[in-house]
Amino acid sequence: MPSVRTFRAVTSTLLTSLTLAAGLQLAACGPTVFEDATTLTVVGDPPPPPPKPKVVIAKPKRVEVQDNRIVINEKIQFDFNKATIKPESDSLMQEIINVIKENPHIKKLAIEGHTSSEGSDKYNLKLSDKRAKAVMDYLVKKGELAKEMFTAKGFGEGKPIAEESTEEGKEKNRRVEFNITEQDVTRKKVSIDPESGEKTVVEEKTKTVGAAVAK
């Protein structure tokens, strides 16, 4: 029979063992703390910038309405020493017709023919007059525009726009001009909403305005 002393020693040893085992267990099942010192590297791809807009250089219009004239940025070609419009100017003439039709506010046009100083005054005056009238006829016949809309007159070498000393200047002076002698002008009275900035036409007046005709 074990003595009381032996029993106490065994109990004490058992308790110590249990405490130690429980301690070990707790240590074994506690959280594992860790930190990854090596970062996960992510390499990104930024989106490409928006495409560069293609630079489009606007081709100057061949025919355009400016205030009281129709400007032609190309020459009407005539046969040499004649008042016959060359076929290569047909597309230009068609464009002039289109511009006149697209601008119904144009009521009357004065077609003016001009020459360089080469040749006699009388001859130039006659040739420029014939050429102005040829242009008018073309517009009336092929463009089906009202004849009453036009006047045609030649000015010969009397109204140069460039120096006659150079060939370039002479070439500039050989020309046909289209001056608007009568057109409708519309005046609008507009009120602007201070908050929205919206424009409202409150009054609109259209009147026919004439311009001085060259003589």
Binding site: F34, E35, D36, T41, G44
Partner: peptide
């Protein structure tokens, strides 16, 4: 055991492609 973790991500961008 539970794991108490700390991780980091580093971000670096490539050069954008030309427009």
């Amino acid at each position: 055991r539970d794991g108490m973790a700390t991780f980091s991500w580093t971000f670096k961008a490539n050069e954008p492609k030309p427009a």
